[in-house]
């Protein structure tokens, strides 16, 4: 294996890693603020990228408008997911499984809708800086990929600031950590959950518009993205924005290594095996401390 090839695959892994990290970021945001695993996270990205494509390519409007509306579409969907699915489930005292199942249902609904209107074809969105490349140790990297990394890092920092410094961010955390206590403090817990899902939706939409120039937009892409994002999120501790990105990068690099050493066909096998291995090897590190069993 030449050095260039190695660098090339590391760069590819890094880019993919930030993609997974962005999806994981949304999962972490929703889990942190609502204790729900949102199986639609990948499909929120699908929505974001489809909207961006419709506006920027089909309608030929400015790219930046497509990007913005793609992100907004993700946020709006997140809001609707809470109102139409999460809230009725919570009202009927749904279990952990029911939340996962309804969001899985939502994921299929999104994917089926895209299938209905877009068909089985796949689409690519032009990236920031078009298809321009930069050289890194003789290997090429898309300018867009660099933007992806920069923007993701910015989002992580912004989320950190949001949770640590703003009143609403703190209220969102309080509502999820101790709902009853938050209620007595006058925090509207239901509304905080809605905000959390909308925020997760925004992050999902952003992931979609950033990812769309790098991978094919296609009706089936959501579920696999969700799973890889989930692997990234739990690798990073499931509630930490920074951890999710970090986990995503590790996953992306492992995948890249699998591609060069085994074969590209087995990329997903390696990623999924890694996901299972992480869950088994560090189940407690993920939730912090263990729940109280006895007494």
């Amino acid at each position: 294996m030449t050095l260039t090839l190695l660098v090339q695959s590391v760069l590819a892994g890094l880019t993919n890693g930030f993609v997974y990290g962005l999806i994981g970021l949304g999962i972490a945001v929703v889990f942190r603020g609502a204790r729900i695993i949102n199986a639609m996270q990948g499909d929120l990205a699908l929505i974001g990228s489809v909207v961006a494509y419709l506006i920027a390519v089909s309608l030929g409007l400015p790219m930046i408008l497509g990007f913005l509306l793609g992100v907004v579409a993700g946020g709006v969907t997140g809001f609707l997911v809470d109102r139409l699915m999460i809230r009725p489930t919570a009202k009927r005292r749904g279990t952990e499984d029911s939340f996962l199942l309804v969001t899985l249902g939502g994921a299929f609904a999104v994917s089926a809708t895209v299938l209905l209107y877009f068909g089985r074809d796949s689409y690519v969105l032009p990236g920031i800086g078009g298809n321009a490349m930069v050289d890194v140790f003789d290997a090429a990297m898309r300018v867009h990929a660099i933007w992806l990394i920069v923007i993701s890092t910015g989002v992580v920092l912004a989320l950190r600031w949001f949770y640590a410094k703003t009143a609403i961010g703190q209220a969102m955390l309080a509502a999820s950590i101790d709902p009853e206590g938050a209620l007595t403090l006058g925090i509207n817990v239901g509304w905080m959950r809605t905000m959390t899902l909308a925020l997760g939706g925004l992050v999902g939409g952003l992931a979609g518009v950033l990812v769309a120039p790098l991978i094919n937009i296609q009706y089936e892409m959501g579920l696999l993205l969700t799973l890889k994002g989930f692997a990234a999120a739990i690798l990073g501790g499931l509630t930490s924005p920074f951890g999710a990105i970090f986990g995503g990068v590790i996953l992306g690099l492992v995948e890249a290594l699998a591609v060069v050493t085994i074969s590209s066909g087995y990329k997903d096998v390696v990623a999924m095996t890694l996901l299972i291995a992480i869950m088994i090897a560090m189940p407690q590190g993920l939730f912090g401390r263990r729940g109280r069993l006895g007494g």
Binding site: I37, E96, L223, T273, M279
Partner: peptide, 26 residues
Amino acid sequence: VLRLSGHFLALATLALAIIAHVLFLE
């Protein structure tokens, strides 16, 4: 895998299904 609980378990089995599908293809 079955030592996991709740959504972890569900996603682990989904990951298994994906692995199986890729292997059937490859």
